[in-house]
């Protein structure tokens, strides 16, 4: 009898454990949807700013903290290194696809800039991958990105 009770208890326990699983599944699906939305937003931005040309991944680094407690001011650093065949970096565009105003800034470099590296502070409205696209003087486009989790987002009023 005792053994049966124990087994029964275990069975119930397993059932309880199984219960939240569908909810988890839903959450995963939602994050998948969000990723798709973010990707679509980014592709739209590329179409707007670069006539749909797709940048190649590489040579551009975006440095952000992995987690921001406050989305109102997040330290951002972007840097572009020259690919083969390019003499200089012309510009770097920064995008946050999930922000209400996703084109954060465009940085343009003169010939006298020794290094295509910029630091600033940005606002973030949601968890997302911040992307930077660099244009080089030989016409190449290259990009990089960094994912960031935001615990307290900026632009809250916008959502109301």
């Amino acid at each position: 009898m005792k053994r049966r009770q124990v087994l029964g208890g275990m069975g119930a326990g397993v059932l309880v454990c199984l219960q939240p699983l569908p909810a988890w599944g839903q959450a995963w699906d939602q994050s998948g949807e969000r990723l798709k939305e973010e990707q679509a937003q980014f592709e739209q931005l590329l179409a707007q700013h670069f006539e749909g040309r797709i940048p190649v991944e590489g040579n551009v680094s975006v440095n952000l903290p992995a987690l921001a407690e406050n989305g109102n001011s997040v330290a951002l650093e972007v840097q572009a290194d020259l690919p083969v065949g390019a003499a200089r970096v012309v510009s770097i565009d920064v995008f946050a696809p999930m922000n209400p105003a996703p084109h954060i800034a465009q940085f343009l470099f003169g010939a006298g800039t020794g290094r295509a590296q910029v630091r600033t502070r940005m606002r973030l409205a949601a968890d997302q991958t911040v992307r930077a696209v660099a244009s080089f003087d030989n016409g190449r486009l290259m990009m990089g990105g960094a994912h960031i989790v935001v615990t307290e987002v900026a632009c809250l009023d916008f959502l109301i």
């Binding site: 209400p100 105003a101 996703p102 800034a105 940085f107 910029v118 940005m122 606002r123 973030l124």
Partner: peptide, 10 residues
């Protein structure tokens, strides 16, 4: 150096 800034700058 030139920077064109948008609403997303702190």
């Amino acid at each position: 150096f030139k920077a064109l800034l948008n609403r997303g700058i702190a």
